[in-house]
Design a protein around this nucleic acid. Structure first.
Length: 108
DNA sequence: GACGTGACGCTAC
DNA sequence: AGTAGCGCCACGT
């Protein structure tokens, strides 16, 4: 059963909430940290969950979020201190995936 | 039960 | 380097 449980959602929420200002995480990294089956699931959770999570700190590995969100994303990120170049978020160095769960040995 | 859709990722050209 | 196509998983209709 490939149904997402509240636990998975809670995990993603915790990860996103653990992202410090001025830093951003990619869906893929969060999905891996949350042990999700696919990075798409993270996007689905964000879309469905209208929590106060800083979803704007979560960006795709391409550095270019969906057009309908890109504007909002970049503007919010800029307010956080993340300057986007040409509508592109610099994943280089700003990438920060807080492994809030020490269950991952790859957490360095 | 099946098809279409979607806050994505990676590889190939 | 940028663009295009395919693959992935879950949800909605």
């Amino acid at each position: 059963m490939a149904a997402i449980t509240d636990e998975q959602v809670e995990r993603v929420r915790a990860l996103v909430a653990s992202i410090p200002s001025g830093k951003v995480a990619t869906y893929g990294d969060i999905a891996a940290a949350a042990a999700l089956s696919s990075p798409r699931i993270v996007g689905w959770i964000m879309r469905t969950d209208s929590s106060d999570l800083p979803w704007h700190r979560v960006i795709p590995a391409s550095g270019r979020p969906a057009a309908h969100l890109a504007t909002r994303q970049l503007e919010r990120l800029r307010a956080e201190g993340v300057l986007a170049t040409d509508g592109r978020v610099p994943l280089r160095g700003d990438r920060c995936v807080r492994h809030v769960f020490d269950d991952e040995p790859s957490a360095r």
